[in-house]
Each structure stands twice: as structure tokens, then as C-alpha cells.
């Protein structure tokens, strides 16, 4: 599990190296104070967000879309026999999908396999999910979603297959 400290201080990439001392002085004046380190009296501790939390937030966003849901795993191109039983996830528009998340510093990478109702425009559905996931993760955890990879692995007819 990757530990994360919420974004503090200047954003990544804002302090590009410069060759002039004047520019460096200007940047030093403009940059906010560095965050307090452990041992400082002002140090209040770290907030650690687990990847599973981000994954659940993303899965919830898919669940809230009426035309997207969980997708049954596939083996050699076919849905695994017995999907929906014995703990194997089935393709269902009313279930949360399988989502994986990785946290690197304050950046999140998300992969998800989802099902979408057959004949719905996939571009519209996945764009809504991506925007919702990015906004929600940012709002609730302070982490920035760098990439949301969406794999539509099943197309469901009328609710469930």
C-alpha cells in the first residue's frame, strides 16, 4: 500500500529551474512556506489515503450511472462459466464494478472493468464516469487523478446478462 501525504506547499512542476539568480529569488519569495516536518511543533500528522478508498469511490461513481455496472470476468474471450455464483462477479448494471487504484504521492491511477447497457453510446457513458470519478476523488481525498483507464468488457442487455 502506498502512503500519501495530502498536497501541501507548491504544486508539482511550479518551480521550474532557472538560470538567473533574480528568477530564483522571485520564486523563493512567491513560494509558500514548506510544510512542517515531523518533530516540528506545528506538525499535525499525515493523512493517509489507501488505494482501496479511491477504488471504492470510483466504483461508486460507476454504480450511480444507470447504464453502467459490474462486468463478469472473461477467460479466453468468453464470460467465465458460473459468473454470478460462488463469489464470481457477474455482469450487472446494478452492481459495483471491479476497480484498481494506485497512489503515487498525490497522484492516482485508476483502472476499471465495467459493463454498459447494449447500444448505449460508450463514449458518452465513459466520459461521464471519468469526469465524475476525477471530480469526486479530488473533492473527497484531495488527490489528483492522473489517469482513469476504462475497459468495457461486457455489453448487457436489459439490466443483467
Amino acid at each position: 500500500m502506498t502512503q500519501d501525504r495530502p498536497v501541501q506547499g507548491r504544486p508539482v512542476g511550479s518551480a521550474a529551474p532557472t538560470s538567473t539568480a533574480r528568477a530564483e529569488r522571485h520564486l523563493a519569495e512567491a513560494a509558500p512556506a514548506p510544510p512542517p516536518e515531523p518533530g516540528d511543533p506545528d506538525y499535525l500528522g499525515d493523512i493517509v489515503v489507501a488505494p482501496q478508498v479511491v477504488a471504492k469511490l470510483a466504483a461508486q461513481a460507476v454504480y450511480e450511472h444507470p447504464r453502467a455496472g459490474s462486468a463478469a470476468p472473461r477467460m479466453f474471450g468468453s464470460v467465465v462459466p458460473g459468473a454470478g455464483h460462488l463469489g464470481i462477479r457477474s455482469s450487472d448494471l446494478t452492481s459495483r464494478p471491479k476497480v484498481s487504484a494506485w497512489i503515487d504521492a498525490s497522484v492516482v491511477y485508476i483502472d476499471m472493468s465495467i459493463s454498459v447497457r447494449w447500444a448505449e453510446p460508450l463514449g458518452d457513458v465513459t466520459e461521464w464516469i471519468r469526469n465524475t470519478v476525477e471530480d469526486r476523488v479530488k473533492a473527497l481525498t484531495g488527490l489528483t487523478v492522473a489517469r482513469t483507464r476504462i475497459s468495457v468488457t461486457d455489453l448487457v442487455v436489459d439490466g443483467a446478462s
Binding site: G77, L122, T126, R130, R149, S151, V152, L155
Partner: peptide
């Protein structure tokens, strides 16, 4: 293998999913 929905690898559709949906219909 996978069909790109948005022209990149960010959003893909498994060709097997399309195959199954079309076949069933």
C-alpha cells in the same frame, strides 16, 4: 483485441463483448 473508443488506450471496448452482444441480438 480491444477497440479504442476515444482513439487512445484510455477507453476500450473488448471485441468479445461486442461480438457477444451482436451475436445474441
Amino acid at each position: 483485441g480491444d477497440i479504442s473508443i476515444d482513439g487512445s488506450a484510455r477507453t476500450t471496448l473488448g471485441s468479445a463483448a461486442l461480438r457477444d452482444a451482436l451475436t445474441n441480438e
